[in-house]
Every structure is written in C-alpha cells, then in structure tokens.
Design a protein around this nucleic acid. Structure first.
Length: 476
DNA sequence: GTAGGGTTAG
C-alpha cells in the first residue's frame, strides 16, 4: 500500500485495503494511517473522514502519525489552518499526544505554501520556546518561501541561524538557493555555486541541474539549457525524466514543437527516459494551437508505448475533443471510470457547453460537480462571467460576481478582465478617471460627482478598479 | 505510517 501511495495510485491502495478486510485480515493503525495519508495526498477529504470514523469505531486510537497526517490535510493539502490548529490544540491535547517536530514542520510547510511566512516564523519560535528542536525539515519550507518571494536578506539570516543551531546545509537547501537565484535571473551566481560545490562541501544532484535548466528555459535560453546536459554528464549525472520533460517544455515554449516531437521520437535511441508527463507536455502544446489531430495521434502513441494516461492526459484529450466539436463524446468520458474527473475536467466541459449555448448540459455538469463534492474555483466563476457577458448579460455577470465577493470570494485578474471586456462591449463601462485614488477594502467616492449605476465598472486609476454597489458608492 | 527541493492539463 505504501508503494502504491508513493506512486500516487490511491485507488490501488484502497483496492488492497478492501481486499485485506474481505480476507479477514484485521488492519492495524499503520494500515489505517497509510490509507489515510494516500487519501489526504489525493485531496479526497470526505473519504479520509469516513476512514477516520471507521478507525475510531474499531477502537483504534489515532496516534502521533495519524494526527500529523491530519495536520498535513488541513495545512498542506488545503488551507484550513484553523482546523490544523484545532487538531494540535484540542484533539491532540485531549488524547494526551504531544506535537513533535514533524507536527510543527508539517504545519510550517502548509503555512509557507499558503504564503503565511510570518505565521510560520511564529510556529518556529513556539518550537524553540516549547523545546521541540527544529531540524532541516522545519527550516527548508521557510527558506523556500523566502527565496521564492525574493526575500534574500531574510533567507540568509535564517541560514545563519541554522548553522548556529547546528543544522548543516544539505543539497535540498542548496537547490532552494539555486531556484531563488534562477528566479532572479542571477545565472552567473548559480554557475559559481555549482562550480564551488565540492569545496563548500555539498554535491549537486540531478534536481540541482533540473532547477537550473528550468530557470534558463523560462527566460528563453534554450541552447544554454541544452548545454547543461554535458556539464551534468561530467558531474556523473544522467538526465532523468524530469530533465527531459523540462527540455521538452522549453522547446514547446520557444515554439519549437517539431524539435520537441523529434526529441520525443529519438528518446529510446538516446536512452532517455520519457513518461506520461513527456507526452502530456507535447499534447498540451498541440492543444493550445488547437491541433486536435496531433493531440489524438500522440495519445494513441502513448497508449501503444504502454504509458498510463493520468487525469491531466484525459483533461488535455477532453479539451481537444471539445475543440473538435465532439462535446457529448468528451462528456461521456467522465462516466467511463478510466480516470477521476476533477475540477479542471468540469471547467473545460462547462466552458465548452456554455460556448455552444447548451445550458441544459451546463446545469447537468454543475449538478455532477455538487454530487462529487468538487468545489468551484476562480476559474469556474470566470467561465460563467465570460459566458454571461457573451450572452449579452454583462450586468447579470457583474451582479453575480458582486454577490460572490460579499461571501468572501476573491476574483483574479482574468475575472476582472472578462468582466471589463463584457461591460465595455455593451457600452456599460465608464472609463472616467477620478482624482481621488482609493485603496482596496476601503470605500471611496468619485470626485467627479457623477452617479454610477449598479453593474457598471469604474476605473479609479490605472491600477484600481471598482464596481458600484449603489448609485454613487464604490467598493474597493 | 507523518515533514523539505525540479516537469505537464482548464
């Protein structure tokens, strides 16, 4: 079960678990934790909850690992930090189990992923106060977040503390540093860091080079990225499937799709390991150029090769079937049981049926999402806004968004753009500039003195956008 | 059985 869990094959884990129960072999706490962890990692929380219930009904008491998996569920796999704290403060305390270094490191990891670096620092201070000694697993998520946010000064400060604490830097930490430097386009320093690795006392691995290559690819330095293959070789490292996929993506991004296809074709001859992601990478590129025939060809080729498609593969295929106009066939795939339809699958299908003005199918898809307990996200909302605007109802779109925002929904730039575009095309956009500049979350009043009707969008400055609630009042 | 670094889908 652990092996399947590591391979992200949750359904196989569950199959084995049920087989175990049917053959009268009583699962112990370790079995339950293994299954719980695989469900949590796959964000299948309602099933995780049921499993926890059956565990308790069998009088198997949760132990430290169980609690740590729950903390992971609430902080790393979702952003329900209040619940994560509740596991630690209430449930663990009532069960007489003390949080350990893993509990806090897991919490810190989740907080950092959610951008709450200050709070993560607070947890670190709590650990020091409660004498739960932090280790390298505690520090790395914070370092990752700091360097990811270009907070270089704070990062080196923390590294100083780690060394003083007696926690030597390892390859993972150096890889985070390399990633930070790449994001700053400071490739010269990356080169120096790799050249001096031996004398500083660390050894780069293939991940170090993958990060470096990916950094170069993202700024379009295709040749330099490929050049690193030789450097890797000299360092005794072979390209992994990740390396190949980064290079394939690099070629695709640089519009060198033919080269990417050739590379994929020559992979077995080059003895390069290709996998499902390699095919997904190319298929998604063809999908974005709407070349649905090329996508289906590659899909057939990957099946022939014995590679197992994953949910991303199916999402790309479903998207390309929609491009080809085969909407009903695309939708029928979600019932076949070949893969688990997720949020992305539904967003693709909802958008496609909206575009073809088939509202019956759109409603059916929303219903299915509800049944599957899949929550809508900013993308789902944007699709609806976009299509309401296209259907000639931008004011409806505006009202819909406003209602959601009252309930705490945060739109992104694409959401605003869709609405601005829709309102503008129907002459419902005022591009009047106001002399008083408003701040977010603060009510502002236009200095022009003009009333603005509900459903209209108003530019307050180049950067600030406000949607009117009532005449004359502006929100944000 | 639980915590850290690299790739792909809307």
């Amino acid at each position: 079960m652990k092996a399947y869990c590591q391979a992200n094959k949750v359904d196989e884990v569950l199959r084995l678990f049920h087989e175990m129960i049917e053959s009268q072999c009583k699962p112990n706490i370790i079995c339950f934790n293994t299954v719980l962890n695989s469900l949590v990692t796959a964000t299948r929380f309602s099933e995780a909850g049921s499993l926890l219930d059956s565990m308790v009904s069998l009088e198997l008491n949760p132990n430290i690992s169980t609690f740590n998996i729950l903390v992971k569920a609430y902080s790393c796999c979702s952003d329900q930090f209040d619940s994560a704290y509740m596991v630690i403060e209430d449930w663990m305390v009532n069960s007489g189990v003390s949080p350990d270094v893993t509990t806090f490191s897991t919490l810190i990891s989740g907080l950092c992923k959610g951008g709450r670096i200050c709070e993560a620092h607070g947890v670190l201070n709590r650990m020091l106060k409660e004498k739960v000694g932090p280790n390298i697993f505690t520090f790395t998520p914070i370092l990752h977040a700091l360097y990811g946010k270009r907070m270089i000064k704070e990062g080196s400060c923390l590294i100083g503390f780690m060394l003083k604490w007696g926690c030597p830097l390892n390859t993972v930490v150096y890889n985070i540093l390399i990633d930070g430097l790449c994001k700053n386009s400071d490739f010269d320093r990356v080169k120096i860091m790799l050249e001096r690795s031996t004398s500083i006392g660390w050894k780069p691995n293939s991940i170090s080079y993958n990060i470096y290559m990916n950094g170069l690819c993202k700024v379009g330095r295709v040749m330099d990225a490929f050049g690193l293959l030789e450097v890797m070789k000299k360092d005794g490292l072979s390209p992994t499937s990740f390396t190949v996929n980064i290079l394939l993506d690099c070629l695709c991004q640089a519009s060198m799709v033919d080269e990417a296809k050739n590379l994929l074709g020559q992979s077995s001859w080059l003895k390069w390991e290709v996998d499902t992601v390699s095919y997904n990478t190319l298929m998604s590129r063809y999908s974005s150029t709407r070349d649905w025939k090329a996508v289906l060809k590659l899909f057939a080729a990957m099946l022939k090769k014995g590679l197992e498609p994953n949910s991303r593969t199916y999402n790309i295929v479903i998207n390309c079937l929609c491009i080809a106009g085969e909407l009903m066939y695309a939708k029928s795939l979600i019932c076949k049981g070949w893969f688990r339809a997720d949020l992305v699958t539904y967003n693709i299908l909802i958008d496609a049926f909206y575009r073809s003005r088939n509202t019956v199918q759109v409603q059916d898809l929303y219903e299915r999402m509800k049944q599957e307990k899949i929550a809508e996200d900013v993308y789902t909302v944007t699709v609806k806004i976009n299509n309401l605007c296209k259907a000639g109802e931008p004011s409806e779109a505006s009202k819909f968004l406003f209602e959601l925002m009252k309930m705490g929904f945060t739109p992104d730039l694409v959401t605003y753009s869709a609405l601005i575009d829709g309102l503008a095309k129907h002459g419902k956009l005022r591009d009047k500039f106001f002399s008083s500049i408003g701040r977010q979350n603060r009510e502002i009043t236009g200095s022009s003195g003009q009333a603005v009707n509900a459903g209209e969008l108003v530019f307050v400055s180049n950067k600030y956008i406000s949607i009117s609630q009532n005449n004359g009042d502006f929100i944000w």
